Structure formats: structure tokens, C-alpha cells
Simulated scan of single mutants.
Amino acid sequence: MSPPLPWLEDECTPLPAPTKALGIDSHAPGLLAAGGQLTLRRLCEAYRNGVFPWFSQGQPVLWWSPDPRMVLPATEFRLHRSLRKTLQRFIAAPDCEVRIDTAFSDVLNACANSPREGQDGTWIVPDMQRAYTAWHGAGCVHSFETWIDGELAGGLYGVALGRMFFGESMFSRRTDASKIALAALVCFCRVQGIRLIDCQQNTSHLASLGAHEMPRAEFLRHVANTVDAEPVRDWTYHETMWTQLGLRPTLRGARA
């Protein structure tokens, strides 16, 4: 029988230690606590301790710390031949570019409204959207955007603390548009010394791109060693960053 789930009354109630999360044999592996509000203070506390919120409309805020944790090491991104060709065509096209933080609200809304296989509804509920929009305004949440023919074709968003990036969600309106954004994130992370991208949950899609599970204890050690590092100051995607994947930029200059 699982122990009672801790309830967070307010910000004065600290999150339990991640090791207190429900185990693999429970009804909700990784569930740590419930309740509280999505304030910037609470969100900062959570992510710095390897905890994230995930809940549906009508539920209290649910806080999670799964074991193992799905992660994508920036050096282990798997660039399949078909994706390499897609990226090379994208880079060469004059009407294609990657931007950072130029349409954050659009990316967030698209992620919230994109249908997911096996999911009914979205976990990016209005409270989550408001909280992460505020956190974006504070400079800790960023969007990587794939633009084709002047339109937002896909993208992703995530949380950046120190030299750690916590991926949240992605979407595509055109084939491989989210993969292009993820490839750009990987290049950016390599340039900026961000070694690990948190993917939270295990999916076959992420596994096909090089993500794998990591024991929670190892993940927490990595987070503790990186969240207090000097934060990234320049959130601009430059064409030259594509060379991190062995791709040749068109030398048309930097893009913002």
C-alpha cells in the first residue's frame, strides 16, 4: 500500500525529497506530491530539485520525479540519414530558419493544442500556460522555432537554469519541423556547454533520436552540478551552430 501523498498548502511547505516519490510498483510511479500553486518560486524550487508539474484540467497540481529519468545527452543526438538530408535542405533554403523566443506564446499554444497519440486532452492547461508564460518573461523559459515560408511550422519550449535545459513539449505543422527545432536545440546546447537535455518521460520517438533513461540519483547529481552555473546570456540561433552536427551553413549570416 502506498503511503499518503504529501499535500502542499502553500509556498512555505517545501517539496518532499525526490526520493520520496512513489515507486515503480505503485499506481503512479514518480508522483511526489500534490497541491500548491505554480508560482515562479515554486517552479524554480521544483526544477532545481529535478521535480516537474504534470496534471490535467480539474486536478490539483501534481508534482513528479520519475525514476529512471529520460534524458538526451547533447553529444548522443542521433542524426539519421533522412533527417540529415532534411536539415541540409532546410539550411540551404532561403525561406527557412530557426529562431529563438520570437513566437513563444504561439509555440506554447500549439503544443497545448496538438493531439497526442494515446492522450485525451492536454496537460498544458491554462494554469500551466500562464505560469510558463510568466517564467518566460523572467528569462527562464525559451522556445526554439522552425520557420518555413514565413510561417511557424514547428517548435519546442523548455526551461533553462544555469547550464541545464529541461525540455517540456514540441509540436509540428509540417513533416519533421519539431525534429528540426530539436536538432537546433542540440547544436545550441553543444555550443553553450549544456550537456544534458531533460526529456522527463520515456517515448519511442525520443529514444529514436538518442534519448535514454538515466537513474534518478545520477540525474539529480547532474542537475545539482549545473543549475547554479553561469546562465546562457545570448539566446540567439546562429547558422554556424549547424556545424555542431557536421552540417554546412549557407553563410548568409546569423539569424535571430
Rank of each mutant, 00 (worst) to 15 (best):
D67S: 02
E11C: 12
H205I: 08
P231I: 11
W123D: 06
T39R: 09
F104G: 12
E168S: 08
T102K: 01
A138S: 13
L5F: 04
V125D: 00
H238M: 08
V223L: 07
V223R: 01
W235T: 12
E213S: 14
Q200E: 07
P60H: 04
D198Q: 08
Q37A: 15
A93L: 04
A74Y: 09
F188G: 10
C44Y: 11
E97Y: 01
G36Q: 03
L40E: 13
L245A: 09
P231K: 11
P29K: 05
I180H: 00
S26T: 11
R99S: 10
H136M: 12
A21S: 09
T236P: 02
F171N: 04
D176C: 12
A217H: 01
G36V: 02
L31N: 10
Q201Y: 05
T75W: 06
T250P: 04
P53N: 09
F55D: 01
A254Y: 00
H212C: 10
F188E: 10
T250D: 06
K85S: 13
A256D: 06
N49A: 14
A131E: 07
R89I: 07
R174S: 13
D149H: 12
Q200S: 10
S178Q: 06
L22V: 03
D149M: 05
R42N: 11
V186L: 10
L185V: 13
S56G: 12
W147S: 01
Q129P: 08
G23F: 01
Y47R: 11
V125I: 14
H136L: 12
E9T: 05
A46D: 07
S114W: 00
I197P: 03
Q119P: 00
M128L: 14
A134R: 13
P16R: 02
R84E: 03
G162D: 14
V51H: 01
D234S: 12
Q200M: 10
W123Y: 05
M214R: 01
I197H: 03
P73W: 05
A181K: 04
D10Y: 08
L220G: 05
E230W: 10
L31K: 09
P18Q: 02
Q192R: 15
R78W: 06
Y237N: 00
M164Y: 13
R248W: 04
R163I: 15
E145P: 14
D120Q: 06
L196Q: 05
W7I: 08
G210A: 09
E151W: 03
P14A: 10
E151A: 14
E76H: 12
I124L: 07
A229M: 15
T13N: 02
R81H: 02
T175N: 13
D149S: 11
D106P: 03
A46P: 08
E117P: 02
L206P: 02
D10F: 09
D234L: 10
A160E: 11
A74W: 09
A138G: 06
R255W: 02
I194H: 03
S169W: 01
P231R: 12
T236H: 06
I91W: 01
V227I: 15
L245I: 13
T203R: 00
F144M: 14
I180G: 02
L32A: 03
A28F: 08
S105L: 15
S26Y: 04
M70P: 06
L43D: 07
C140D: 12
V71I: 14
A153R: 10
W235C: 12
A34F: 01
A229V: 15
L40C: 10
F77H: 04
L72S: 04
G246Y: 08
M164P: 07
A46T: 09
